[in-house]
Amino acid sequence: MNRNYILLMIVIVVLAGGLLFLPQKANYIQQDPEKLMWDIAQPTRYITTDEVAKMIIEKDPLYQLVDVRADYDYDMFSLPGAYNIPLDSLLTEQSDIILDVEDINTILYSDDDLKADQAWVITRRMGYKNIYVMKGGLNCWIRTIIQPKEPKETAPITEFELYKFRQGASIYFTGTEISLDAGEKKTLNVTRRKKETVAEGGC
């Protein structure tokens, strides 16, 4: 047998044997710190409570909600259809089943942004994509969706439209009727301008 072949065989056995003795590396999938910092600084991960409300009402199949508070908080009050993954069990296999679904956007929320943001950083470092945070958390949810405040009279029309949507959403989520004071009709006095008649010249 050719000596070169024997040499090659020895090389390949040494390489294959080397694999057995390589020290174990725990986890290679690491987010680049610089990129992570950049992502943390971006507000793009935030979704407003209005968007979340709309998504729940429309039963948008592309989104799922995850409550990262402790389970007793979750049992007391949470959003409809939300999963519960407490912050300390984010690294378990069960949470992986919920979070690791392709093409589904996950929205994290807690009482405020704090825990949800922490959870967001952890999931980001774990390599999950399409993770968002509900801006303001459940406190903001109560403030804006459940008990919306009427905007000032001088506010732009978009704020009134938002207010109307929030009132509707509040009815949807709480089941209680809110008095709508948009019922009063005001009579407008329409004064029509008289048409000015211009002397028509013949030609």
Binding site: I12, L19, L20
Partner: peptide, 20 residues
């Protein structure tokens, strides 16, 4: 994977020799 590849390399070398 590492163990299997080592076993596989040994099998391959035996095969090389036997076929020869």
């Amino acid at each position: 994977n590492e163990k299997f590849s080592f076993i596989f390399v040994i099998i391959a070398i035996i095969v090389f020799y036997v076929t020869w």
